[in-house]
Design a protein around this nucleic acid. Structure first.
Lengths: 143, 143
DNA sequence: TTGCATTTGCAATATAATTGCAATAACCGG
DNA sequence: CCGGTTATTGCAATTATATTGCAAATGCAA
């Protein structure tokens, strides 16, 4: 099994400490993280924030991480584990985020629809759910 | 049919010029717009940007507009026409955005999955597609 | 038309992301 | 393992996006 350093090098870029740490931090997180959160989890010495931003852009362009848009001010990122596809559920009450791997995620009817109507080749999609978590539901009922 | 001013008033807020214009601008746009683009389409006298931000937040909390996250630096907004459900396709090459109304959008298997695994009540979802538009596909092939 | 509550414009501030440049770290060949 | 080359990093400045306090202006019900 290839280490993340090997993967980065094979793609033609130096495997610096920051790049390895970002991949490790994201791989260990069940939730997508913002650049600030990623920086917060760096072991000392922490790099500059600009380094984190630059590396996230690079890793995203290499397809090793993906950005996740949850209608927030800041972007989040998650590890792009090959073949593993994840979605998120965000609680409208408390903002809690849960990530899950769907048993099934068949959007092919939609993708064909897009193909025939708009002539776009769809390569990726991003699907997020918004709702109420069990805790907030109880709180709402209590009122 | 109720005017947008009536709808806003009925929800308990003064129907100011800015609010009406935002709803009109979004209703006339086939694509979701950023706050800056919305401001750009305002007829003179243009309001301050802060007014646009404040009103977008208010209208979103009232459910009259929805924010759309396309992995960009800024959020976009679209009109929340009752019962009409839309998705977007973004071209990775040129950034072109197309909006479409799916013939079918049945995510109920996923919603039940979320219900049983995470116990969240899902109320909304957000589904975006990323791919290559016909123009960019031709450009790529040409190379 | 008047009075009250809310919103607006303006300026200041906060937060997120990007950039230029000199110092530093990573990598390759020997 | 060592030096030379190249890319990256830290730092500071800058830009873009969004938020806030407050006095003046506006919306609207009576």
């Amino acid at each position: 099994m290839a280490t993340s350093a090997e993967v980065i090098r094979r793609l033609g870029y130096p495997a610096t400490r920051g790049r390895g740490e970002i991949l490790r931090i994201l791989a260990e997180s069940p939730l997508p993280l913002s650049p600030k959160e990623i920086l917060g989890r760096f072991p000392a010495p922490k790099p500059d924030a600009s380094t984190v931003y630059r590396n996230l852009s690079l890793l995203a362009s290499l397809g090793l991480v993906r950005s996740v848009a949850l209608h927030e001010r800041s972007r989040r990122y998650e590890i792009a584990t090959d073949g593993v596809h994840r979605h998120r559920v965000v609680c409208k009450g408390c903002g809690k985020i849960e990530s899950f791997q769907p048993r099934i995620c068949d959007l092919s009817p939609l993708v064909s629809d897009i193909r025939s109507k708009l002539d776009f080749d769809v390569e990726e999609h991003s699907l997020e759910f918004f709702g109420v978590c069990p805790q907030c539901r109880r709180r709402e009922k209590g009122r």
